[in-house]
């Protein structure tokens, strides 16, 4: 048994999980994208076991295994944690409302990926124009649609 208080270990695990980036967006944490739902630390026979509950953006996302492996590696690297159990939870349902302002800003700045505003409109992350129209609901990944800015003529991707 570890002598470190469980709450402290949970904080360590939380930080370790938050250090994992989405494979599609290096530099953007899965925690900021809203994929992390539960973090618990249980007493295992050989020491504390972290149980991390994640939710996928879309059921068919092919990056799920990679994300789970990255979380496993990050958490088991902690000296106060013996093992890590990563679970994909069936609920709640992910939506763009789960993304933090930091993730939203990083996606716009680094990846020209934007979120739909509450009024339904889109703003081009390159030139700031609102003259952006969706071209295809299906983009390069399950969670992105393809739009086009009529002002600066750049392609813009939209989290959906």
């Amino acid at each position: 048994m570890s002598s470190v208080p469980a709450t402290t270990v949970v904080d360590q695990v939380r930080r370790a999980v938050a250090s994992v980036d989405d494979p599609e967006y290096p530099g953007v944490s899965i925690a900021d994208l809203g994929l992390v739902e539960t973090i618990e630390v249980e007493d295992g026979s050989d020491g504390p076991v972290a149980v991390v509950g994640l939710i996928p953006t879309f059921s068919g996302c092919p990056a799920l295994d990679m994300i789970a492996t990255d979380v496993q590696h990050a958490v088991t690297a902690l000296t106060d944690v013996r093992d890590c159990d990563v679970r994909w939870l069936s609920g709640p349902v992910w939506s763009t409302a789960r993304m933090s302002p930091a993730a939203t800003a990083s996606l716009a700045d680094q990846y020209t990926v934007v979120l739909r505003r509450k009024d339904g409109g889109l703003r081009c992350p390159v030139c700031g124009s609102d003259d952006v129209a969706v071209q295809s609901d299906a983009g390069p990944t399950r969670c992105r649609a393809i739009a086009w800015c009529a002002s600066c003529r750049n392609p813009v991707e939209v989290m959906r």
Binding site: S59, G60, C61, P62, R142, I146
Partner: peptide, 20 residues
């Protein structure tokens, strides 16, 4: 091209539902 992406996306979702 866009339809290729869209139809593959749909296929991925159905396979994801099957896994669930």
């Amino acid at each position: 091209l866009e339809e290729d992406l869209a139809f593959c996306s749909i296929a991925q979702d159905e396979l994801g539902h099957a896994i669930g």
